[in-house]
Nucleic acid binder design. Structure first.
Lengths: 234, 234, 234, 234
DNA sequence: AATGAATGAGGATTCATTCAT
DNA sequence: CATGAATGAATCCTCATTCAT
């Protein structure tokens, strides 16, 4: 019984998140309302608040789930690559394929990138650069889903860090770069290339530039940004 | 008589925009409410709607004003530079100085970058890459303030295009790049470096990275992105 | 538990409708504001929107309730009449008595006669003249209250149709008339006799005609309109 | 100069009324806003208030102008008829033709039928049934346009009264009717037949009745209402 | 006569969250 | 766990009218 309940609970939770995700994809975070999620998930509004303490937390859960899914695929893909260069290419490809394969999920992710979670005064907590995120960090974060998201973010950045570090050793990445900020910037650059912000979108439209072309140009630029000076690679 | 009124009207308009700008800076576009703007500007709500047909239009006006101010300074600065390399440096510096000098204004600008204006079906209008924005484009945009903003955007991108084109001729910019998409991407990269999106911000905090350091790293990366392969320049 | 809640809910719903009805009677549909209804019903505005999706729907609910009440009485009264002639007289009397007995309710009804409900594209739905309104029609009407109203309208018209049909058989109604349009016209004529439109009201005032006299004249005219040519009836 | 001014003034007045009329036809009285009228008439809002003391008065002016136009045509047509029966037919035809020829104007008229003018306490004024409307009545009505409308209404009703009186003499109208209330009712019946109120409209739609058919039925009924018992006329 | 900036009360509706059942 | 009725502050926007110029 307990086990059965447990499973049902997990199912419900995921169902709710599925609906929320779809709504975020369609109408943005702002446009996703608790009432509509409840209706579409066929539960009472109160039930939503049994599973998620508030809207922000629900968003965090959805965000974390997407981030995790992407990261796991990235880890797999990168694991099957022989060198850093291929790994970088592979992880980038994962994002592309994800966008193609799960357009709604990607669309939700894109919206969630812009969301500020009420992380209160977490700033103080961070002081540790080592990679044991689960263990020593985020313990004071009240919201479990937000904590999960932060952990997921961290895992992702450290996955990339490892790859880039290897890239430096193998010579396909400029050696003088500071890894972590570089990774963070590269990641944002990738997202901005895939999903230009309104300002950039206006300009692209005004100049009649095909989004896919923009994406190619942007990718080329980011590659040059980290490539060693004399690199002949493509 | 007419002149006096004219001036008074312009003043009021600017006063309203000043208030709105400040509120956007402090609480975001969403947090800026027409009621509060009216109260702080010491006018009736109805008066706001005499000057601006709706909130969106007011935002567009504020956005256009900031964009214009920045562009004008950039034009001046770049005009006083002898070569493209210096011009690029100067225009970037303008953004930095602007941020420093007018933190509120900058903050509002940052928020407005994310705002979608109701630009209906403008897509059709664009088909002209030449630089006569004022003359041949945007005539069908119903909202004057939004039209002004689009024109301002275009002027800015064409200013940068001229500089980058010169840069290619002078050899400080990679010659094989496609100018316009590159400029748009570089511009967004600069903004993302200065004002990381929530997602990036979380990561920076989690990794305990100083925003200013992040900015330096990001700038270095963007420079490498457009620099010719064998360039020795710094 | 459930039952108690159920009852309480129904009560509240009716309370709200009572207030709305009274306000419509006093100030017209336009003058009835959601805020005032909420205040007088001693509930929060939000509560109104729990029970009625919008103002229009609330009006429809009030309208349907009145229509139903009148129709039920009419059915009872007409059932106790031996012939069609008496039935017609009785149903007309019901309207008179209703107006006398529930002046506010009647007054609200009068206002609601002029209200356009957002019935979208219902036109398509109608194609069935048989009398199974509840069963086969109106299924696509999104708003339940509006649907109820339409069903009520239909029930009323079919009640009258049956009576008039009987009247033709019994010879007190002209046999060559087309029943349904006649009934609809007769009904409007009755209402216009009871509650002259502003235009008619002005004329009555200008000619110094007593409304009750006007009513009598109008009733006499409508009787002649459907009476067989050679009828001696009064 | 004075004459020229005079004419220009009259033109302006009519232009404004034209615009107002069109807007009433399209969006109803409520939907016609002074601001939009001013814009479309290419005058300042203030100018509207130079010509019409308020919205209600403007509506009254529009209403009176339409009423007058219809009445004048009716007078002409009825003058050219040899007997009352033909006159009645002719005056009814005038309404039909008017509707066909000036659909916008008619549409506006239909809306204005429902408008209550602020006639304050005019009730007291009426006490005179003789036909010298311009001379002895309405002198206390503050608003000239409303007064014009009332006078127009009265002229119309007296035109009809003369025709019906003749009809009685000629035997085509029941002799026992009370003329004035009958005329008022007949007039409203005609309008309701041409432009069913929302309530009737719903029913017509629900029963799938063609408006033109409804109109025919309604006209037939009204004819019977006033026809002498044994009349063989059609 | 003509202008049009200014008014501001007032409208309908939304929505995250709570809590008694 | 689950429910869903209740909340009520908050939002954007309208529009007839006035009055100083």
């Amino acid at each position: 019984m307990s086990e059965r309940m447990e499973r049902r609970k997990k199912e419900r939770r995921n169902e709710i998140m599925d609906i929320a995700e779809k709504m975020i994809a369609q109408k943005g975070v702002q446009g996703m309302t608790m009432k509509e999620v409840a209706e579409k998930a066929d539960v009472a509004i109160g039930t939503l608040y049994v599973y998620f303490k508030n809207k922000n937390s629900l968003c965090a859960a959805v965000n974390a789930r997407i981030s995790k899914q992407m990261r796991v695929i990235m880890e797999e893909e990168s694991a099957s690559c022989s060198n850093a260069c291929k790994k970088i290419r592979a992880t980038t490809a994962v994002v592309f394929e994800f966008r193609e394969k799960y357009p709604d999920r990607w669309s939700a992710f894109k919206e969630l990138l812009l969301l500020n979670y009420d992380t209160e005064n977490i700033n103080d907590i961070y002081s540790n650069n080592d990679f044991n995120p689960e263990i020593n960090d985020f313990q004071d974060i009240s919201d479990e889903n937000i904590r999960d998201l932060l952990i997921e973010d961290k895992k992702m950045s450290h996955l990339m860090k490892d790859i880039y570090r290897q890239g430096i050793q193998e010579g396909c990445i400029r050696s003088e770069i500071d890894l972590m900020p570089t990774i963070i910037f590269m990641r944002m650059a990738l997202f901005m290339a895939l999903e230009p912000l309104p300002y950039a979108q206006r300009m692209l439209e005004a100049e009649n530039i095909d989004p896919e072309h923009f994406l190619e140009v942007a990718l080329d630029l980011t590659r040059h940004a980290v490539r060693p000076q004399s690199s002949k690679k493509r």
